[in-house]
Design a protein around this nucleic acid. Structure first.
Lengths: 159, 159
DNA sequence: AAAGCATGGTCAAAATAAGTCAATAAGTTT
DNA sequence: AAACTTATTGACTTATTTTGACCATGCTTT
């Protein structure tokens, strides 16, 4: 039993396959018509299968000549590496270990210096807000750090 | 199947490309005639595609020998550019506006697609935690989003 | 200086198309 | 079968483009 969501998701994936391009453009209305569903179902498909966490970026425009553009930023066979990274980060990670990991990833060319800077800024920001705004205990901050780091690394796990 | 607005916008961009100058001058009436539209459509193109947020400044003059001058903003040093970015983000920014800004920055080559992906993941993570974990009101989330985005963009601008 | 013509600006309506949200429904897991 | 997760729907909201009527401004010619 295949859900409509899966069918539509698979169809979108084939659109990527047809050309070597890593970007496709759709009309929400047309897609909905093609699969005989309400337009908002397309939003659900996109939200559940083509999120940034899954390596896709979406850009859309409403109104006249509206469109939905989906960009794929990820190789398909990097699942193993992503899993490995998830293991490395784990459920909780200290500030120090996080930094060590980032340094190592940068040295191995997995991420660029700018990307590392970006991640560090994001982590520090979260850390500071957790401490100052919500007075979170250290362990909670470690798990939240791990969560953010995992999401970021998995989404970047390509190349 | 491009909108007229996009066609005209693209045409204007080619005008910049033709000369090394960072400034062009045109006649609203002539442009409207060239593309077979009402003159006010040109105003719409300018408002929607050549705003200060998108790196352009516009001067115009009515009457006899009226004209429209479009200037491309350029920044001489990183600090200035960082300041500009901070202004663009402001104290609070919606999810949509943040995404629009990222798209525009990526299209202008200020950030790479990977960097944009990374920022989106970080923003979405913060958004979700603010909503689910702390039940923050929308405005608070907008200010926190602005804070994170400002930190990230400024740090990248300095790099 | 006034009148007239040549430009550009503003605003709002109409047409079009996408997004959100919450109520159900349908599957899955325990 | 209860609880939980995932999928489906549709009413309502928001955004973009196109068009046109009306307004403002600045040369040019009297």
């Amino acid at each position: 039993m295949s859900s409509l969501t899966k069918v539509i998701g698979d169809y979108i994936v084939t659109l990527f396959g047809d050309s070597p391009k890593s970007e496709i453009i759709l009309r929400r209305k047309d897609l909905a018509e093609k699969f005989g569903c309400v337009p908002s179902q397309i939003n659900y498909v996109l939200r559940s299968r083509f999120s940034p966490e899954q390596g896709f970026l979406i850009q859309s425009q409403r109104g006249g000549h509206g469109f939905i553009r989906i960009m794929q930023l990820r190789f398909d066979d990097c699942g193993e590496y992503a899993e490995h990274l998830e293991d490395l980060v784990g459920d909780a990670i200290s500030e120090q270990d996080a930094r060590r990991l980032m340094v190592s990833l940068q040295e191995r060319g997995v991420i660029s210096p700018r990307e590392r800077l970006l991640v560090e800024v994001a982590l520090r920001n979260q850390e500071e807000q957790g401490r100052v705004l919500f007075d979170l205990p250290p362990y909670k901050r470690d798990t939240m750090r791990a969560e953010l780091l995992r999401k970021i690394l998995v989404s970047l796990a390509m190349f």
